[in-house]
């Protein structure tokens, strides 16, 4: 193996050579020198170097072995009136009511098909430092997704304040509000005196650091189950 010669001396040597000596044009231009330099890199080591780098980088990120899925912690079991406190919201399910219709709830049951309304009265407090929209619109329904029916993945249809029926209300920081979550249900989906299981989910705050700035809430993850008895009030007016 020839030892690499410093380019400078090579061109000097070429310059000192007589005009009759064989020219190596590679030594004259920077492009040629670059080509000669890359010729000296042992290409058969490329694959090994690449693999080594890849392994080093993955090791820095925790290795190649698949991560075992974390054991899901058991959900908190609560009853009506008990408060579940997450990072974003403090939620207290008060009552569950089955009713034929409820003007002002934001939900309209298809009475011809016997649809009824399942209404949950839930007190919520925004624990964050900014207002949160409690809305059923798909892009802003984070808060709405925090309250769900166990075994029933229908999204809430009507979300209003219980006191003045404000539609899709905004939750101000640290101001508790009593909300009515309403689902349209079939005539046999739920019945009075049944125990309803309400799944409360927590959203975690993600603080942007690398590619984007600002904070955003991740999709809520189930954290607690509240058991509340269903009251069937027929067509009666809500208290």
């Amino acid at each position: 193996m020839t030892t690499p010669e410093p380019p400078g001396s090579a061109s000097a040597a070429a310059g000192r050579a007589s005009s009759g000596a064989p020219e190596s044009p590679g030594h004259r231009t920077a492009f040629g020198r670059l080509r000669k330099a890359t010729d000296r890199v042992p290409t058969k080591w490329f694959a090994a170097i690449g693999t080594g780098l890849f392994l080093a980088v993955t090791a820095a990120f925790g290795g190649l072995a698949p991560v075992a899925a974390e054991e899901e912690p058991p959900l908190d079991r609560l009853v009506a009136g008990e408060t579940h406190t997450g990072e974003q919201l403090a939620i207290t399910v008060q009552r569950a009511v089955l009713i034929d219709e409820l003007p002002g709830s934001g939900a309209f049951p298809d009475e011809e098909n016997g649809e009824r309304l399942l209404v949950l009265l839930v007190e919520m407090e925004n624990l964050w430092t900014e207002p949160l929209p409690a809305s059923t619109a798909s892009l802003t329904s984070q808060v709405a997704k925090s309250v769900g029916l166990s075994g029933d993945d229908r999204l809430v249809v009507g979300l209003v304040r219980e006191d003045d029926q404000t539609f899709n209300p905004w939750l101000q920081p640290d101001v508790p509000a009593l909300l009515a979550f309403t689902w349209t249900v079939g005539p046999d989906d739920y019945a009075g005196d049944q125990d309803l299981e309400v799944v409360l989910s927590d959203a975690r705050l993600q603080i942007g650091s690398f590619l984007y700035t600002g904070e955003s809430w991740l999709t809520p993850v189930p954290a607690a189950v509240v058991t509340v008895p269903i009251e069937d009030v027929g067509a009666g007016v809500e208290q």
């Binding site: 900014e130 404000t166 905004w170």
Partner: peptide, 8 residues
């Protein structure tokens, strides 16, 4: 804390 004007 940031509060938004009330729409109620």
């Amino acid at each position: 804390r940031v509060f938004r004007a009330s729409e109620r």
